[in-house]
Amino acid sequence: MLLFATFVLLPLGASVYYAFTFWDGFSAPRWAGFANFARALTDTTFLMSFVHVVLYIAATLVFEVTFGLVMAVLLNSDRRGFSLMRGMFFAPVVLSMSAAGVLWKFVLDYRTGLLNSTLRSVGLGDWAQPWLAQPETALLFICIVSGWKYAGFYMVIFFAALRRIPRNLYEAARLDGANGVQQFTAITLPMLKQNVIVCILLAVTGGFAGFDLFFTMTNGQPFGATEVPATWIIKQAFDQNQIGYGVALTVVLTLVVSLISIGYLKISERGNVTRY
């Protein structure tokens, strides 16, 4: 508990104080009142960074949670080879985000990347794009890489849950003449409801903490199209040497996440989802 207090709560408290100062991290802080917060609310890049992170979270729900669920169903078989495939599909989860980021920068490189050279070799050279240089595609590809990295994690969670669904439910459904899709929507999804809700929570909180992939792949570029709160905060506080302002931004971030979390806990308490 002491450890937690020292390295989580104390800095949180200090943040609130520094947020009201002009400070470069070295000389004595000067009291700034609400100036930093006023600036934060007119800082379009900062505001846009929340839009990006929301888009990112929405995309992770598709590329990670949904894709993970689909793959769990697809890979749910006792046949030879499926165990290996599950292992391979999960493998990116154990890699570090920075390794994933560096690797995918190579995959997406305009001239020498795997993606563009594949397109060129099958005669689709015109489709080759500078994927990370265009505001429209850069964020999308970060989301895809994030999906590549984490879909395996969600796949394993859903896979475990699938295994617990009694077989006879499906047999009964089959006798009633339900096809695969109907079985999925009528049995599988409802049985996985609890897991889906927990996974969404993980994806949302994980999304706000997102830094590594953005930092290694684009660091906010092009034109701030992939700027998320974390990268922008680090830029303000360190690159621009404005610790006071950077900290104010962290307080705003904390507030936003807390509001979302409280809302979520309220809902989940009502639904008795997490044993809380």
Binding site: V8, P11, S15, Y18, I243, V247, L253, V257
Partner: peptide, 9 residues
């Protein structure tokens, strides 16, 4: 809480 929110402090 996301870690970036206290990184600076």
């Amino acid at each position: 809480l996301p870690p970036p929110s206290v990184a600076i402090a």
